[in-house]
Computed example of a mutant assay.
Amino acid sequence: MVHIPSPYRSKEEYVHAIFSSIAHRYDLLNTALSFNRDKYWRRFAAAQTGLQPGGYGLDVCCGTGMLTIEQARLVGPRGRVVGLDFCENMLAKARENVKKTPFSEQIQFVQGNAVNLPFPDNTFDCATIGFALRNVPDIRKTISEMARVVRPGGKVVSLELSKPNTPLFRQLYYFYFNHLVPLLGRLGIGFDGPYSYLPNSLKDFPHQREIKELFSDVGLADARYYELTGGIVTVHVGNVV
């Protein structure tokens, strides 16, 4: 289990504090620590949504809005995308990021919780979650909520860090992730803590095969996954029926 330091009473409270503290550097460090692969990962994930021009997408735990923006590229000027997050600082950064794009009129940001989405059933054409499934208090409930608010025929898509299967590559990756990422993160934000949480959160996160089973268990059809960059990240996809 991820250690929750005092004075935080829950994982949710701890995660909120972490992302509030790093929102201002989150995008820069994501790009640096992923060697600029994060942009490709998000575009690949967005491509799995099946979104069409004029569509209506939801990005859960949207953070700074980067995956939300990728959805907006797909739905075009006639479409809409909602980005939801529980962290005020991340939403503020997301709004700032969107102002730099042509998509300001298409994107709406709302504050809310992934395990209790404030939307009616069958509202969206898709729901995505990027690099956040391992941070939610209840993985199954989050996937179930995403499926609930997507119309039949739509898709639920998760982009998340995962566990490489090739032994040598896995060892190299874990050395980088467990030792160098916390160091580089500390240098990037000026204090310790948040980027030490990252490797710890992955240790307790289910293997990509187990996440696929969760997708099926909540009723998503044709659950499948794609391992990218040697399995550093995985994109899961399920169809709403």
Rank of each mutant, 00 (worst) to 15 (best):
I4P: 13
S6Q: 15
K11A: 08
K11G: 12
E12I: 10
A17F: 06
A17R: 13
S21C: 13
I22W: 05
A23I: 11
Y26A: 08
L28G: 13
F35V: 12
N36K: 14
K39H: 13
Y40M: 11
R43Q: 12
A46P: 04
Q52F: 09
G54H: 06
G55F: 00
I69R: 02
V81W: 00
V82E: 00
V82M: 00
L84S: 03
F86W: 07
M90E: 01
L91K: 07
A92S: 15
A92H: 15
V110N: 06
V110Y: 05
V110G: 03
N113K: 14
V115C: 09
N116D: 13
F119C: 03
F119N: 02
C126E: 02
A132T: 04
N135I: 01
M146F: 04
V149P: 00
K155E: 06
V156D: 00
V157A: 03
S158W: 02
S162M: 08
P164C: 07
Q171I: 09
Y174I: 12
F177G: 07
L180E: 11
L180A: 13
G185N: 08
G188S: 10
I189N: 12
P199H: 05
L202T: 07
K203D: 14
D204S: 15
F205Q: 10
H207T: 14
I211Q: 02
S216P: 12
G219E: 04
Y226V: 11
V235R: 01
V235P: 04
G238V: 03
V240Q: 03
